[in-house]
Nucleic acid binder design. Sequence first.
DNA 1: TTATTTATGTTATAGCGTAACAGGTCAAGA
DNA 2: TCTTGACCTGTTACGCTATAACATAAATAA
Lengths: 173, 173
Amino acid sequence: MQDIPPQPDPQPDPATLAFARHDHSHCAGDTLARAEAVAAERGARLTPVRRRALEILLEAHRAMGAYEVLDRLAADGFGHQPPVAYRALEFLVEHGLAHRIRRLNAFAACMHPGQDHAPVFLICRACDSVAEAAGEPVRAALDTAAAAVGFTVERANIEALGLCPACTQGAAA
Amino acid sequence: MQDIPPQPDPQPDPATLAFARHDHSHCAGDTLARAEAVAAERGARLTPVRRRALEILLEAHRAMGAYEVLDRLAADGFGHQPPVAYRALEFLVEHGLAHRIRRLNAFAACMHPGQDHAPVFLICRACDSVAEAAGEPVRAALDTAAAAVGFTVERANIEALGLCPACTQGAAA
DNA sequence: TTATTTATGTTATAGCGTAACAGGTCAAGA
DNA sequence: TCTTGACCTGTTACGCTATAACATAAATAA
């Protein structure tokens, strides 16, 4: 998922979650299955709304605003009011099944539920795509910096704005 | 500014920008002077509203919402509408004289204008204090992680939620 | 001066998020 | 079984955050 194609196609979606091409239907289904396993393991109740909210994020495969998720939930027969979406999303974030991207006021399904809980988000300012990259070393450096002043890190948001591979090429050309 | 007092007093302010005690009036004036130098150097026009907005952040010495800054600007005879504050704050952020803390929907004066442009923010979930710590190693790790997928980082937000030294002690006691 | 850019201020509105309350579901224990 | 308590879902209502679009004024460049 991290390899960069030499000639990337134009973005198929305005905000895909990984820059490289991949079998999306497979990755979504697979991730959902792993998310279910993680939830079961943690004793977290993945109720219908919550599960559907996660599916919506996985299907879209991009960062989505809470109201956008809400619209889809409502269309599927769930509640129509903001708290419905916010609570489901909060649950997913709480249990590491989704992430909140504050720079975008948006949420995205976690692509590595249960394993990689130090994600960094790479947001392309040109094409608005968003990638979730592994950030263990970044998190380790953050923990060190915090420890130096006596601070204990519990949760972290690490978000970068810049240019994705495709747009870097475009800018150079 | 990074040393931790053995017996920190109760927070004098709900959201101070550094955990350790220090001579605030001195640090604010000094920082403002350095900020002016940085602005001049960059050819950035530190107009009255912008300068006043920076002063407000420095005087408060904590993270402030845009509307809170706006109220003070209005009280000083500047405009009363949101864009007045947002534009001034945006300018300050743009030129590295202030930072935006997305987790708090707030802004804070940069404590190291012109030198340290890889700040990390440490937000205490117990007492709401915020510290700006040096984050060069964190930023370096982030750049590395991004480069691994071909992404070029231009700006980054690195924010940690956890417990400050004082509240860690309190929780342990 | 005149043209051009940049900054300030306004009105109006869009977007994001949460508090507080009501009803429903489910499991554990009396 | 029935009741209690915890949790989940849904609602209304509201507040906070942020920006678009436009008018005016000030500074800069020609």
